[in-house]
Design a protein around this nucleic acid. Structure first.
Lengths: 150, 150
DNA sequence: CTGGATCCCCTTGGATACTG
DNA sequence: CAGTATCCAAGGGGATCCAG
């Protein structure tokens, strides 16, 4: 009976505080995945952060972000606009002028995200230490494969 | 002078609450991007959420997640372990048994992320409405291209 | 100035097969 | 059971050209 096959406990509950874990990140169905993909894509968060300070035009954002392609900036802004996070205002002047600003929803999301940013700032040292330790452990295992893993 | 070229204001400050926006998401340098990429990848968040309930073994996670490949589960777990978010325990028994559990750091991160999840839950209706409105507006523009944008 | 359209590369991630 | 190694498809994202 010491073979590790204990039969799965199955007695742990996945519901907590009223929502089901399996239900808020099951890829296609829920919006959590959608929003997460949105804010985690390469540029959205940075755009939101910049627009939270003040409204900006397309080229201002482009110049400010440094490294983004116009294709990606346009795409990102369209996504954010579609989700109601950013408001786009077109001024009908000779050289087109378009201003982007955060909607209240976008500003609200940004303030929520900042908690995560703050967390990361506060724990960056722990994460870096964990990585260093892991890498050291890993390369050590290569040299001493016979040692017990623990 | 009505050509829209106002010369960029340049008078808006990007520093707020002590940190520089340009400095916490400039791709390569900061850990914010790293952590964000980690929790936003396809499976990490779900793994964290499940492990927050109780520790689980590899196959339990695999069976529970439904849709994940063993390659991705192994990869995800190794990443999480490297970042110090998940602890891996190998039991030297005949059929190998490996338990995964959240570290205090991982549990802490999860509780932070849950704020974002909660936000999404609360605003899913607004987002859905914004998308519907955007799509309607977009397709309407195709039918009435001559109308002023505002 | 503000994008859309195209081409192309590279990463992410799935499927499968193979070890210990 | 718990992975690793290999192959391959889909999509993200950059560069460039073009239009309103």
């Amino acid at each position: 009976m010491e073979d590790g096959t204990f039969e799965s406990p199955g007695n742990c509950r996945y519901t907590e505080a009223g929502f089901d874990v399996k239900n808020w990140d099951t890829r296609e169905d829920c919006e959590v995945r959608q929003i997460l993909d949105r804010i985690a894509d390469k540029w959205s968060l940075l755009v939101i952060a910049l627009l939270d300070q003040c409204s900006m035009r397309f080229t201002e954002l482009r110049r400010e972000i440094d490294g983004i392609s116009q294709r990606m900036l346009a795409r990102t802004l369209r996504h954010l606009e579609r989700d109601g996070l950013v408001k786009r205002t077109v001024h009908p002047v000779v050289p087109p002028r378009v201003d982007y600003e955060l909607t209240p929803l976008g500003a609200d999301l940004h303030s929520t995200i900042k908690a995560l940013v703050t967390w990361t700032e506060e724990h960056r040292a722990q994460i870096a230490a964990a990585r260093t330790a892991y890498d050291a452990r890993t390369s050590a295992d290569e040299n001493a494969p016979a040692a017990a893993t623990r």
